[in-house]
Structures are given as structure tokens and as C-alpha cells.
């Protein structure tokens, strides 16, 4: 693929990728890093893209996997730093410890959203993805099913479980604060 054609893809999808990554990591600098990684992967694998799914869906999948891997590696780095195994420099912008720096959060909702986002961070990866795609990205269940390679019913059941777990986590946090 020529660089000019690829630049068109970057310009068309960078907002989608950046916002989705931001919804996972909550820190603009990290979302920027993930966006760059995603497009490098897309460039590498574009020849392998079979066109069975839409390009948008395929890029969504890559973004979700890259974001989850990023969070996993950050958790692992934090673990290594905590136990003194790591010789790396301490994490500067740690999305796992600091509050959300999401620029799309309205000031009046910030406090409430911090709590909800922290609770979402404790959910299993698939439940977290369902909430991000359905509620923040506001995609339809059918689209989410396609992106996650699941049936619509499975998405619905994942969503119900995520909702239940989220309420439980929020209630536990509230009780602990009292």
C-alpha cells in the first residue's frame, strides 16, 4: 500500500482510534502512544486484511487488543516496581494510580465519572469492553457483537453481568468510604 493511501486511512480513523484508546487508558499521552502502535499494526497487516469484516471493525479490534495489552503491561510494570524487581524508571503517568485525565469529561461530571471509571477498570476485560463500546462509544449491540466476534445474545449477557458487577463494585466502594 502506498504511503498516500495509508495516510487517508490514518486521517479517516485516527479520531476513532484515539478516543477508544482514551476510554481505556484515560490519559491522552498513553492514548496517543496506543494510536501510533495501532496504525503501525494496521500498516503491517493491511495486506492480510481479507475484507470479511469492515475496515472500521477490524481497526476497532486492533485498538481494543492494543489498549488491553498496554494496560496489562502497565500493571506488570507497576507490579515489578512495587516488588523492586524492575530497574526501569518509575512510571510517570500512571493511569492505574492517578485519576482520569480524559479531556472529554465534563467538569461537573468529573467526580462521579472518576468513581465509575475506576470501578470499570476492575472488571474483566470483556465486560469492560462491552461497557466501553455500548455506553461510551454508543455503538449498537450488533456492531459490538461483530467487533468482539460474539453473538448478539452473548453481548447482551456480558452487558448484564458487567452492569451487575459494576453496581457491586460501586456499592462496596461506597461502604468502604463510610
Amino acid at each position: 500500500m502506498s504511503p498516500a493511501n495509508f495516510k487517508d486511512i490514518v486521517l479517516s480513523y485516527q479520531k476513532q482510534v484515539y478516543n477508544l484508546a482514551l476510554n481505556y487508558v484515560q490519559i491522552p499521552a498513553d492514548a496517543e502512544e496506543i494510536t501510533q502502535d495501532v496504525f503501525l499494526k494496521v500498516y503491517d497487516k493491511i495486506e492480510q486484511f481479507e475484507g470479511n469484516a469492515q475496515l472500521k471493525t477490524w481497526i476497532y479490534r486492533i485498538t481494543i487488543n492494543t489498549s488491553l495489552d498496554f494496560l496489562k503491561s502497565k500493571k506488570f510494570k507497576l507490579f515489578k516496581t512495587f516488588f523492586g524487581i524492575s530497574t526501569d524508571a518509575p512510571l510517570a503517568n500512571d493511569s492505574l494510580q492517578k485519576n482520569s485525565q480524559h479531556p472529554g469529561i465534563l467538569l461537573e461530571q468529573k467526580e462521579g465519572l472518576q468513581r465509575v471509571l475506576k470501578a470499570i477498570d476492575k472488571l474483566p476485560a470483556q465486560q469492560k469492553t462491552v461497557l466501553v463500546l455500548l455506553k461510551i462509544e454508543q455503538l449498537k449491540q450488533q456492531e459490538v457483537a461483530e467487533i468482539m466476534d460474539l453473538r448478539t445474545k452473548a453481548v447482551e449477557s456480558l452487558f448484564q453481568r458487567a452492569k451487575k458487577n459494576l453496581h457491586q463494585i460501586l456499592n462496596t466502594t461506597k461502604e468502604n468510604e463510610k
Binding site: 484515539y18 461530571q109 454508543q138
Partner: peptide, 15 residues
């Protein structure tokens, strides 16, 4: 409603 709260997150432009 925490889920309604999630819907208030706005899309931002990338750098």
C-alpha cells in the same frame, strides 16, 4: 445512573 454518566463523556479531537 453510572451508565448514563458514561454517556456524558465527549469525543475529543486527537492532537
Amino acid at each position: 445512573d453510572p451508565l448514563a454518566l458514561l454517556q456524558t463523556i465527549q469525543k475529543v479531537d486527537p492532537p
